[in-house]
Design a protein around this nucleic acid. Sequence first.
DNA 1: TATGATTGTAATCGAACGATGACATATATA
DNA 2: TATATATGTCATCGTTCGATTACAATCATA
Lengths: 97, 97
Amino acid sequence: MLIRSPSDLGAAIRNRRRELGLDQAALAKSIGASRQWVIGVERGRARAELGLVLRALDILDIPLSVDAGTKPKTKPAALPDVDIDAIVDAARNKRRP
Amino acid sequence: MLIRSPSDLGAAIRNRRRELGLDQAALAKSIGASRQWVIGVERGRARAELGLVLRALDILDIPLSVDAGTKPKTKPAALPDVDIDAIVDAARNKRRP
DNA sequence: TATGATTGTAATCGAACGATGACATATATA
DNA sequence: TATATATGTCATCGTTCGATTACAATCATA
């Protein structure tokens, strides 16, 4: 899943927490933060502290990765040329037994 | 590249920035933050603001992803019940020809 | 080697954080 | 349906943030 905003990240944290059957208080305790902090982050708090966010991801066993090998964007490979005439001719031949 | 700490993330940001030939001031301006903020983040500042970090990653075209498909760790399949008595008896029988 | 560019450090200030505690609201369970 | 549990909101406080400015140190270039 691609993370583009604090909301994306918050949703990932909340979904995973629920998957694991934890409540916010339990997660907060594991992180070493307050329950209020967990509420905020899950709701997409942009000014949350990076270190605590990373700790939450670690506790929840959510691997976070950056694609460090990203090359400059290239255009998709061109599609093979399509020979429309050949296709039309083949269809015509099929209709003339 | 797996991100486990603010330092990992800071290094990714710095490496990519250099790849793109930007200086810290230019990146800061693009993010809408101060050069001091960029310096701090690149050096692994744990209390950096999540929203600004995500913005930096976006500016630098670094995709950030979480592995949302990770299943909860499950316990290994239970071992078959071991019949200790049967094993002991078998050993006893072996010792009495 | 001198100079310019870049990165790093320090001080200051207003804003807002995160922790704590309490209460309100929503959801789950018996 | 009543009750327990979980989540959300609000107020307060000490701490630290991020922006700004200035100077120091390091690196790159001519």
